[in-house]
């Protein structure tokens, strides 16, 4: 700090010191007076208030899930802010879990083959994401980098697909996938797509494609023509230039489109529950697995809660890994269009 600034700060302090004693203020009044003199404090207070508010509202459901998962079956009604059977005094008696029931996270897999459900959702989401990214990249290249007639109307047509509620497609698709097709008999047991992963891959790819095409179009359009020309002269085809130069340089956009697709498909329930019979070997998704803890005579709420937490972990990990790219992708996409 330079001398001038120090002086100024001291003056201000003196000024403040002179003013203060004349008024008899309560603590709130005092804080308000300080906030007026120094608005940064007020902004900081507002920032923390808002942050805490959003953190509580988003994280509280997870907190509650955790509490339910840790409570043993008989104590569910006793949850306040700690697991129902939580008792710290039990630590002295040698119970390291203090009356909670972390074994629920193991029981989850013993009661129902929940790992298989996670695998189903994960595999379908991963394959859909790959299909969507590859096809949307080709479409994005065409819409973003080539000039041709009717480009605008065609792009609009693609986007219109995403305007329909997915439910509108369900009945015709269900009919279609339940119709036996003889030529498919050698590959599919009864010649229908019902109870196969394809019954989910196909509609998901179609439904999530338009958004990805739109995101990738805006990104691919930004890459200078010179780079593509250079790649082509150096020895790639147009498609080679797309996947070796244009797509890597649009990594934030590709990551954004990929993660949005992955999360949407991973969490999907409506289509998947209707395209399968809910059994794990028939590619039933995660949510079907959670519903399996609901029996005819009892509902294992604590296991459902534990299963939900376990199911969130893969997506949480993915988002943490891709976070940096997604953030820059979402914001730059917003600025560019």
């Amino acid at each position: 700090m330079s001398t001038n600034e120090t002086d100024a700060a001291e003056n201000l302090k003196q000024y403040g010191d002179e003013e203060e004693p004349e008024l008899d203020r309560g603590p709130v009044e005092q804080w308000a007076a300080n906030a007026i003199k120094n608005p940064d404090r007020a902004y900081k207070a507002m920032f923390y208030t808002a942050t805490v508010f959003f953190l509580v509202t988003t994280l509280f459901p997870f907190y509650w899930l955790l509490m339910v998962a840790l409570t043993s079956r008989g104590n569910l009604q006793n949850i306040v802010f700690t697991p129902g059977s939580f008792d710290p005094t039990l630590l002295a008696e040698g119970d390291v879990f203090m009356g909670t029931n972390p074994m629920a996270f193991v029981e989850v897999f013993m009661t129902v083959p929940f790992h298989r459900y996670i695998f189903n959702s994960f595999a379908i989401a991963a394959v859909t994401t790959v299909i969507v990214i590859v096809v949307a990249s080709l479409a994005g290249y065409v819409f973003g980098r080539l000039k041709f007639r009717f480009k605008g109307p065609l792009m609009l047509l693609v986007l219109i697909v995403s305007f329909f509620p997915p439910a509108a497609f369900f009945i015709p698709l269900n009919q279609l996938f339940n119709t036996p097709v003889d030529v498919m008999r050698p590959i599919l047991a009864d010649g229908t797509l019902y109870n196969t992963p394809y019954a989910m891959l196909i509609p998901f790819s179609a439904l999530f494609m338009p958004l990805s095409i739109f995101i990738l179009t805006t990104f691919y359009a930004q890459i200078p023509d010179g780079l593509e020309d250079a790649a082509r002269v150096e020895g790639t085809t147009r498609v080679g230039a797309l996947f070796r130069v244009i797509a890597p340089l649009s990594a934030p956009g590709v990551a954004t489109a990929g993660v949005l697709t992955f999360i949407a498909v991973y969490n999907e329930y409506f289509f998947s529950s209707l395209m399968t019979d809910g059994r794990e070997h028939n590619w039933a998704p995660l949510v079907e697995g959670i519903l399996r803890y609901q029996g005819q005579h009892e509902v294992l709420f604590n296991l459902m809660a534990a299963a939900s937490i376990v199911g969130v972990i893969p997506v949480a990990l993915l988002v943490v890994v891709a976070q940096e790219k997604i953030v820059s992708g979402l914001t730059s996409g917003a600025l560019k269009e």
Partner: peptide, 17 residues
């Protein structure tokens, strides 16, 4: 296509990857 012509090119905007 450009890759099969046996040419190489230096661009105005340099165009390094």
């Amino acid at each position: 296509p450009p890759k099969d012509r046996g040419v190489s090119m230096v661009f105005q905007n340099i165009a390094l990857f």
